[in-house]
Design a protein around this nucleic acid. Structure first.
Length: 422
RNA sequence: GGAGAGAUGGCCGAGUAGGUCGAAGGCGCUCGCCUGCUAAGCGAGUAUACGGGCAAAACCUGUAUCGCGGGUUCGAAUCCCGCUCUCUCCGCCA
């Protein structure tokens, strides 16, 4: 959410930013409503001031045994008018809040301007895509053949885009979760959390999934709970409505969670394999920082995620998302894309973003620089560290052998207990 | 799921026959004084949001906030209704 005062005084900046994102939005009506709100607010607050003063007088008069009936009647009538205007103001505020919650974040200056992912800018590459002297297979074929992935039974038991992992497949998934968490807690300084997998509506609003993208989320019937689409939601909302000490931040948190996504509008895309599931596992990195350090922290966070792929020996590249491809709440995002032989291209496996104070304002997460400091909004960041299912896909495809077996990357061998899946 | 108790400022904690309570007191914290050092002591200050004044900061001023929402009333931390959460006991359960 953007600062109302900022919107009020810089509407052209916001309109420009929205345009860069590919929307065309005018703030004219918003500003008109906002001006009306302030007009009415000033009016009703003056009336309340009078009521407070006179009510106090009435109290004194009654105590003194005087007749205050005339003033009581007067105030009764004033009260009616106050109530009417109050309702009016509340209505306008609801309208404004709804609008405000639907305005995306303003992209950072350094974000390349463009309307699609074609306009994303590659920042760097690491590693060499493997060369095969045989026709490499897609991971779903490798997995099925090895008997470690069962897509058909996933569909039978639950539905499309759900999968069973079996044997060393299940173990590989678990090994990756442990490896990711051990790496981030052991070498990168993150504190591990295990969050709830459901959150209430306000938390979803806090990180920006709601109100605009409700059709993307799974709602739990008979409750106000949603299945989390990422651990970003519970972890970022950890400190909602809190004021942190400056000495406490930056906070580095990481968490494993299952992630649930309706993938509305993705029909027909990536229908095979592990790339796009309704349920997948992910280890998420979340940071709470000061405003002045958040962009340095974004670089570090991205490096932390990259370290996972380096240690696994998977070729990847880093791209800066263009304004048009940027997520709703993000000011700047780097995507890590891992090489997938069957796609003959790089595919997203991690997304690392700086939200600046956009989520912090929605979730009301602040910090204080000192005993006399005014509360300020923190900056929040997060990134996948990394998506587990897609990593399984990448390992199966990049480490496949002519005989259909798959070599286990060195760092995973102690978790797997074997060095080859066959 | 049943019964009961509770929710007040950074923390603890007073405050119900409704009025001068944004809220006593204590702790903590900040600044100053005092004191060989430390500790102790003394004094002052110490919530947030949204408006208005101001180019802006400082500052001044108004409104709102005693879990959340609504109601009664000239006036609500105090009365009424609904909800949420916490604690205790019982039941159930991995």
């Amino acid at each position: 959410m953007l600062d109302l005062k900022f919107v009020r005084s810089n509407p052209e900046k916001i309109e420009e930013a929205l345009k860069k994102r590919g929307g065309k939005v005018s703030l004219d009506s918003f500003l008109k409503v906002e001006a009306e709100r302030r007009r009415l607010l000033a009016q009703v607050e003056t009336m309340k001031a009078e009521r407070n003063a006179v009510s106090q007088e009435i109290g004194k008069m009654k105590k003194a045994g005087e007749d205050a009936e005339a003033k009581v009647l007067e105030m009764r009538e004033l009260g009616e008018r106050i109530k009417a205007i109050d309702n009016n103001v509340k209505e306008l505020e609801n309208t404004l809040e709804k609008e405000l919650l639907s305005i995306p974040n303003i992209p950072n200056e350094s974000v390349p301007v463009g309307l699609t992912e074609e306009d994303n800018v590659e920042v760097r590459r690491w590693g060499e895509p493997p060369k095969f002297d045989f026709e490499p297979k897609p991971h779903w074929e490798i997995g099925e053949k090895l008997g470690i992935l069962d897509f058909e039974r996933g569909s039978k038991v639950t539905g499309a885009r759900f999968t069973f992992y079996k044997g060393l497949g299940a173990r590989l998934e678990r090994a990756l979760v442990n490896f990711f968490l051990d790496l981030h807690t052991g070498e990168h300084g993150y504190t591990e959390f295990f969050p709830p997998f459901m959150v209430h509506r306000n938390s979803m609003v806090g990180t920006g999934q709601l109100p605009k993208f409700e059709e993307e989320a799974f709602k739990v019937e008979k409750t106000d709970y949603f299945l989390i689409p990422t651990a970003e939601v519970p972890i970022t909302n950890l400190y909602r409505e809190e004021i942190l000490d400056a000495a406490e931040i930056p906070l580095y948190h990481c968490a494993y969670s299952a992630c649930f996504r309706a993938e509305a509008g993705a029909a027909g895309r990536d229908t095979r394999g592990l790339i796009r599931q309704h349920q997948f596992n992910k280890v998420e990195l979340v940071k709470f920082t000061t405003p002045e350090s958040s962009y340095d922290e974004l670089e570090k966070l991205t490096n932390d995620a990259e370290d996972v792929l380096k240690k696994l020996g998977l070729a990847y590249r880093v791209v800066t998302l263009s304004t048009g491809d940027l997520g709703f709440s993000s000011a700047k995002t780097y995507d890590l894309e891992v090489w997938l032989p069957s796609f003959n291209t790089y595919r997203e496996i991690s997304s690392c973003s700086n939200f600046e104070d956009y989520q912090a304002r929605r979730a009301n997460i602040r910090f204080r620089r000192g005993p006399k400091g005014k509360p300020e909004f923190v900056h929040t960041l997060n990134g996948s560290g990394v998506a587990v299912g897609r990593t399984v896909a990448a390992i199966l495809e990049n480490y496949q052998q002519p005989d259909g077996s798959v070599i286990v990357p060195k760092v995973l061998q102690k978790y797997m207990g074997v060095d080859v899946i066959r």
